[in-house]
């Protein structure tokens, strides 16, 4: 699986420190996945308490499919769902003089209360 996992620690609010594991999934990887495979991959990472950043983002239909799949897998003990965020597209350098706007979707375990503060 062509994805990069990074771990870092950040100061959240005033006193609480939270370990945040992030899986960055490149567009090359997601291009090879169908909607079901993407949902399965994301949910497997969420169950490992890791967030997933998907380069290229999820389509609205994929977001709906992810909701449906997550709802069937919520066990009311360990896995309670997720939080999702679609930040404004990032302007990334493509060549020496050119840039492109890259959409990202961030999916994190439901208990990541400060997702927007941490990642935007």
């Amino acid at each position: 699986m062509n994805c990069m996992e990074v771990s870092y620690r950040f100061q959240e609010c005033e006193v609480q420190k939270v370990d945040l594991r992030i899986n960055f999934v490149t567009e090359n990887t997601t291009r090879k996945m169908n909607s079901t495979q993407k949902c399965d991959f994301i949910i497997s990472k969420l169950k490992e308490e890791a967030a997933v950043i998907i380069e290229g983002g999820l389509s609205p239909e994929e977001e709906a499919a992810l909701i449906e799949e997550a709802m069937t897998q919520i066990d009311h003990q360990e896995f309670l769902g997720y939080k999702i965020l679609n930040p404004a597209p990032l302007r990334m350098r493509e060549g020496l003089f050119s840039h492109k706007n890259v959409k990202m979707t961030v999916v994190a375990p439901h208990n990541y209360e400060h997702l927007s503060i941490a990642l935007v």
């Binding site: 997550a70 919520i74 309670l80 769902g81 939080k83």
Partner: peptide
């Protein structure tokens, strides 16, 4: 209501 998480 549509939600991405349900916490009892």
């Amino acid at each position: 209501g549509i939600a991405t998480s349900i916490d009892y």
